[in-house]
Design a protein around this nucleic acid. Structure first.
Length: 740
DNA sequence: TTCCCCACCCATTGG
DNA sequence: GGGTGGGGAA
């Protein structure tokens, strides 16, 4: 039994769902039921308009979002009792819901041969790309000390995202730095093609070129998909939009869903201007604005609106809700990042102590990953389970990257980045000099490293290159290892292949010898095997290809588990698209939000403000905005200034925790915070103030985080440093001494 | 050639 | 506070 796609929709949502023919722009504010609209629209196309599922393509920002849509359409599992929108039997009928990158990978895997791309191409991630760029720089004699590979990468990547290839780049060279980048770009491209590899930007750009230059291919895809939908349109780049246009050129059934206020990826070359572009390119487009929030209380929406309206040149979208005002927004300043973390976790304990919230309802968000550490430590200290999204990514751990490199070589021995990663890992007597000689040979013969190994074997070239017999033997042994694995990859299933790889490469022994981290790394290998099991039902090389592609294209949020009883620690960027009843945002300080690197550029500051907006609007019921008076940075303390964005949260929506505790007795004049100079030699007498260091007979050293005079006494909040947490004390009773 | 230690640079945000 | 890369010793 399935739900009717027009059920439970408000008039605007319904309008969006029913508008199936021709271009459609849906502006969807946070919590306005965007995913609902997209899934219902797909269901409507299928059930009411008789469109076959395989004629519909939808692209999302993350694999997780794609999975979520599939789940809403077809149900989560056989046991799922909620009735799905579509008959579960249709699940396998080729409805394409994926990210742009995996959509393109599939296209290229299938039809990339027209562009001279081998079917077994590997996908280079960021660090692979940097590695290859460093090599390219070395080869064209650019000093990586004067030109950072990162900078070169970002200029190449930005060009590719705008569909500017080497030739276009050459035409646009303006200064010496561009010239250098061009030289590296050219070399990088040829190394990459020699290695049979593509990078993330290639996935898009090559797909674009394929569709542009091969009419038979583009005709096939155009007639395959009659309806095209794009989620998170504000975060698409020029290449992605161009591909979408190509695919919907004949029918113009293109539906884009986005919110310019949530555009936070311009640094990744996303262009919210695509929304304006869309209205230009499709002047007949219908525009539907979804402005009823089903997520947040009115208080949260008011705060969010007040924050975002300070940005210039935006299309106002005043969200409203039928929910009540709800809880005020809680603003708190901790003495340092540790107290900030203690407050957050203490409050989480309070909130989840009753039946009100579960740990899974709570997220703590921050601007940079480095902020997660203090929070993690505090979680561990209190025994609060948490899940950390991102940070040291699973697939970028050393042992995982090494194993992946072996597998990639198995699939494609010409992959030079992987080759140089593992040719001597674990060490097998192929040292720097030998590697240099091989690299020289490869370069001179215009082949990959593997090609060079082959030529060594088939001729007496070894002597001429100047390699000793020991080195030659080591190289031959390594080559036969790769060949052996490649042979076996056709016979064995994926799991056995990985096990064989671990064993034959000597990697297992290598890990067992690692005294301090060996166990942990072996566990990671087990986890890797578990991830590979998902592909076990495919056969041999196909499974290998699918697994490798998955390794390259999964993101961190993809791994996020919902409905788990753990607190989520996540960056603001990654939190986009998610929602939680309770949201803590930490580090509301200048330099973090807005980030120091964004502060000179007004446009960048506006993006930081949108990031703040995204954070606030993740919350359904409660928002906490935290900052610290001082924070540890590279081991040093640094005094912090409150974020400029905080003043845009209307005062009447804010409550401060210490004030909440004593409504009747407002604090004496003066701001909270320890900014005030301390009185010298105050001893243990006199009024204690925020920021004072104190010593308690039982709890040890601590810092006064608030001091509120009541009618008869002074109520102190003291954060103790030795694991005793935050305590409320009355000054006249507490055995406290002031210390310096 | 390998391994270990120290210096150095660093860290936005991520498919 | 931490990871990486280079240089020096075994």
């Amino acid at each position: 039994m399935s739900t009717h796609p027009l059920d439970d929709l408000n008039p605007k949502q319904r309008e969006a769902v029913e508008t199936v023919d021709g271009p459609l722009l849906i502006v969807a504010g946070p919590g306005s039921g965007k995913t609902r609209v997209i899934t219902h629209r797909i269901a409507y196309l299928v059930t009411a308009c008789g469109v076959a599922p395989y004629r519909i393509a939808a692209v999302t920002f993350t694999n997780k979002a794609a999975r979520e849509m599939q789940a809403r359409l077809f149900g989560r599992s056989e046991e799922d009792t909620a009735s799905p929108l579509l008959d579960r039997a249709m699940r396998d009928q080729g409805l394409a819901v994926s990210t742009f990158h995996s959509f393109c990978a599939r296209v290229l895997r299938r039809d990339g041969e027209s562009l001279g791309l081998d079917r077994s191409f590997v996908i280079y991630d960021d660090s692979d790309q940097i590695g290859l760029l460093e090599r390219a720089m070395k080869e064209v004699e650019v000093d990586p000390k004067s030109y950072s590979p990162r900078a070169v990468q970002s200029s190449i990547s930005s060009a590719k995202s705008r569909l500017i290839g080497v030739d276009g780049f050459r035409a646009r060279v303006e200064n010496y730095a561009d010239e250098v980048a061009l030289r590296v770009y050219e070399r990088y491209e040829s190394l990459k093609s020699l290695a049979g590899a593509v990078d993330f930007d290639d996935l898009l750009m090559k797909t674009y070129l394929l569709l542009r230059d091969f009419p038979d291919v583009s005709d096939r895809y155009r007639s395959r998909y009659d309806y095209f939908m794009i989620d998170e349109f504000q975060d698409t780049n020029a290449a992605q939009y161009a591909i979408a246009r190509q695919l919907s050129e004949t029918h113009r059934n293109i539906c884009v869903v986005g919110d310019p206020d949530q555009s936070i990826y311009s640094w990744r070359n996303a262009d919210a201007g695509n929304i304006l572009g869309f209205q230009n390119d499709y002047p007949e487009a219908k525009v539907v604005v979804l402005d009823e929030s089903y997520r947040s209380t009115q208080t949260i929406l008011d705060a969010a609106r007040s924050v975002i309206s300070a940005n210039t040149g935006r299309i106002p979208n005043d969200l409203w809700t039928s929910k009540g005002a709800g809880e005020p927004i809680c603003v708190f300043e901790g003495y340092d990042d540790q107290e900030e973390a203690r407050f957050v976790l203490g409050e989480i304990e309070n909130l989840t102590g009753g039946r009100r919230y579960g740990l899974g309802d709570v997220a703590v968000m921050y601007r940079v990953n480095a902020q997660s550490r203090v929070l993690e430590e505090e979680c561990l200290r209190r025994g609060i389970p948490y899940q950390l999204v991102g940070g040291q990514k699973f697939y970028s751990r050393q042992e995982i990257k090494d194993l992946t490199a072996y597998l990639r070589l198995t699939a494609n021995p010409h992959d030079d980045v992987s080759m140089s990663r593992v040719i001597n890992t674990p060490t097998r007597g192929i040292g720097q000099r030998t590697r240099d000689a091989i690299a020289r040979l490869a370069r001179d013969t215009g082949s990959s490293t593997y090609g060079a190994l082959e030529s060594l074997q088939s001729s007496a070239a070894g002597r001429t290159v100047g390699l000793g017999s020991k080195a030659l033997r080591a190289l031959a042994a390594f080559k036969s290892l790769i060949d052996h694995l490649a042979d076996e990859s056709g016979r064995l299933d994926l799991i056995d292949l990985i096990k064989l790889t671990i064993e034959r490469s000597g990697y297992e022994r290598h890990l067992r010898q690692d005294e301090e981290r060996g166990d942990e790394r072996l566990e990671n290998v087990q986890e890797y095997l578990a991830a590979a099991r998902e592909f076990a039902d495919l056969d041999g090389r196909e499974a290998l290809a699918a697994f490798l592609e998955n390794v390259s294209l999964v993101s961190d949020v993809d791994e996020l588990e919902e409905k788990t009883e753990r607190v989520t620690l996540i960056t603001l960027h990654q939190a986009k698209g998610l929602e939680f009843p309770v949201v803590f945002m930490v580090g509301m300080e200048e330099g973090l939000l807005p980030h120091a690197r964004s502060m000179e550029d007004p446009a960048a500051v506006e993006e930081e403000r949108r990031l703040f907006y995204v954070g606030i609007t993740r919350a359904g019921e409660r928002v906490y905005l935290l900052r610290a008076f001082r924070r540890t940075l590279w081991g040093r303390y640094e005094t912090r200034i409150p974020s400029r964005f905080l003043v845009d949260v209307p005062r009447e929506l804010i409550v401060s925790p210490d004030r909440r505790a004593s409504d009747r007795a407002p604090r004496p004049a003066g701001r909270r915070g320890p900014a005030r100079p301390r009185e010298p030699n105050a001893g243990d007498t006199g009024q204690l103030r925020t920021g004072d260091k104190v010593r308690h007979d039982l709890f040890g050293d601590g810092i006064v985080t608030s001091a509120k005079p009541s009618t008869t006494d002074v109520e102190l909040t003291v954060a103790f440093t030795e694991g005793h947490g935050v305590k409320r004390l009355l000054q006249s009773f507490a055995p406290l001494k002031k210390v310096n």
